[in-house]
Design a protein around this nucleic acid. Structure first.
Lengths: 207, 207
DNA sequence: ATCAACTCTGAAACTTGTTCTAGATTAACG
DNA sequence: CGTTAATCTAGAACAAGTTTCAGAGTTGAT
């Protein structure tokens, strides 16, 4: 409820920006080890060389902190993906390819992924603005991969379902209830909605 | 980590069964008021007239308790649905109808829904067996609604995506980031996968 | 009925997220 | 510079989940 985050509000001084960075960095590093539980506010504060009260001024809760960490990581991912766009033939293929690439990135840091995703799904209404920001970034990544001038309403609806699937599949994988292969299958299934019933008449696709 | 739950293991005595019931009842009642945060272990213990240590012997964590509460509620829902099966024409329609009915049930107790769903998505590996049980119950409800003798592999894949969508849409609704109308749309979109590309060319068939 | 093993109770202790306070630092401005 | 408001620090305090422990109560087998 305090401040921070939105590029509006008082712009941060250089030292404040540096503090914010140190905090996010410490958060990601601790998360990279023990996952959600290892991100302990006292430890984050200490690692970032910041008082506990200051940490709470920048991020009003542990969930806020981890969601902000996720925004950070997603931005990095989006930039990476832009540099090497997916090569698939149709929108559905490209989206599936992009998401699986994102998945492999998360696989390299499963504990970090765990921390971020748990925070995201545990977030209550007080974090909805930040969670929404994460959701918008995800949508942007998917739409980028589709590379369509004018997505139809059906395709936009499909994107929503794909996002739900991506998100939920991630959760089941992180909690050890689904394999990567299963996740890929789920994502590919959801992506079939993109060139839905209409597109089937165009061409079956392959890959 | 202790015991409990699985119908295997030592069968519970009548008094133990009664304690378990009191605990689940207290949990649901408290959740029905303030949601996840209102389910405080000390209060649950007091309301169930059980010592705190005993509560933890029955349910090794708050998350375990709430997931067990969800199993309970789902069983009730499944029984209700069996009594009045969905009336839609095709499998997709019936599944969408069923899920929206479940949704309305949750709408009547939004705080309870919040507590259960937050617990479910926050659960870590130590709860995966219980979470899996919830997932199986959900799958059973959907397959019931489809009313197919031999669902194809594609349809089973569709069911997985529908479950993901249901689950994730629920989360976004509970955190105030999506309207009921939006949830309905998302579920209907996912349900289109059931009579997917194959069914379009062949025929809906029902059994 | 008796003994051993297990279960339940009540209460304190411990952990970690969160809040609060008093004083030191910093930043903006004259 | 000097002042004033905002920010930061160190540390105590509080809240709720979880653990632990000693003793009372139950249970089951003999």
């Amino acid at each position: 409820m305090t401040v921070e985050g939105r590029p509006a509000s008082p712009p941060l001084t250089a030292r404040q920006e540096a503090r914010r960075r140190r905090i996010l960095h410490a958060s990601a590093r601790l998360a990279g080890r023990g996952g959600f539980d290892a991100v302990q506010m006292r430890e984050v504060a200490e690692a970032a060389e910041v008082a506990l009260g200051t940490l709470y001024r920048y991020f009003p809760s542990k969930v806020h902190l981890l969601v902000a960490t996720m925004q950070d990581q997603l931005d990095g991912l989006h930039a990476t993906l832009r540099k090497r766009p997916p090569a698939g033939e149709g929108p559905a293929e490209r989206v599936a390819e992009t998401l699986m690439r994102a998945f492999r990135a998360l696989q390299r840091e499963p504990q970090l992924a765990d921390a971020m995703v748990r925070a995201l799904t545990f977030a209550d209404r007080s974090v909805s603005a930040e969670v929404d920001a994460v959701s918008r970034r995800t949508t942007a990544i998917i739409l980028d991969a589709m590379r369509l001038e004018h997505p139809t309403p059906e395709q936009l609806a499909a994107v929503r379902v794909i996002e739900h699937t991506w998100h939920s599949a991630l959760v089941t994988w992180l909690s050890g209830r689904a394999s990567i292969a299963q996740v890929r299958l789920d994502i590919e299934t959801a992506c079939r909605l993109i060139d839905g019933p209409g597109a089937v008449r165009g061409r079956p696709r392959e890959g």
